[in-house]
């Protein structure tokens, strides 16, 4: 996966390097700016069993800052924000691979270095008894939940370091 490029980012940013579960590394550029989740919308995407995006709805495209072509075919971790603890995603994969629904509050990174918070639900798509992919739906979280999650994730990251 390509590193983020300074020309795509607006304003001051910090750099971080992320290492994903499959060993892929990516340099990300992060600003402090939050983009509010749009009222009344749902972000919907689907992935294959490896977490590679196969479908993205317009709300996903709009909020991520990428084009649909830039998203489809990429791992879902293209949206990973360095403030998210690794443990949260490990938990997600454990849950959905056991055919359960996962819910959680997630800080997502946009192409322009800004972020947006979502309340995400991920479910396995079971066809003829086999998991063939995953569907994720994101909706607008409350500010209280965002603040609680920020504090929780900061402490989880502290333990990971």
């Amino acid at each position: 996966m390509e590193d983020m490029r300074p020309e795509d980012v607006s304003g001051d940013y910090r750099e971080a390097e992320l290492t994903f579960y499959d060993g892929t590394r990516r340099k990300v550029l992060v600003t402090d700016e939050e983009v509010p989740y749009p009222d009344g919308k749902l972000i919907v995407s689907r992935t294959d069993t490896k977490g590679v995006i196969t479908h993205a709805n317009q709300a996903f495209v709009d909020m991520s800052g990428y084009t649909e072509d830039e998203l489809v075919g990429q791992p879902h971790y293209i949206l990973r924000h360095p403030d998210m603890p690794r443990e949260a995603f490990a938990d997600l994969w454990n849950v959905v691979e056991n055919r359960q629904q996962w819910h959680g509050y997630v800080k997502n990174l946009r192409k322009d270095g800004c972020h947006y918070w979502v309340y995400a639900t991920v479910i396995p798509n079971v066809r003829d008894g086999e998991i063939v992919g995953y569907t994720s739906v994101r909706r607008k979280p409350s500010r209280r939940k965002v603040e609680e999650s920020e504090a929780l994730y900061a402490s989880m990251r502290g333990e990971e370091d």
Partner: peptide, 13 residues
């Protein structure tokens, strides 16, 4: 249809 059912499951969560 399967997708619609998956979607309703996520929304009811």
């Amino acid at each position: 249809t399967e997708f619609m059912i998956d979607l309703m499951d996520t929304l009811g969560a």
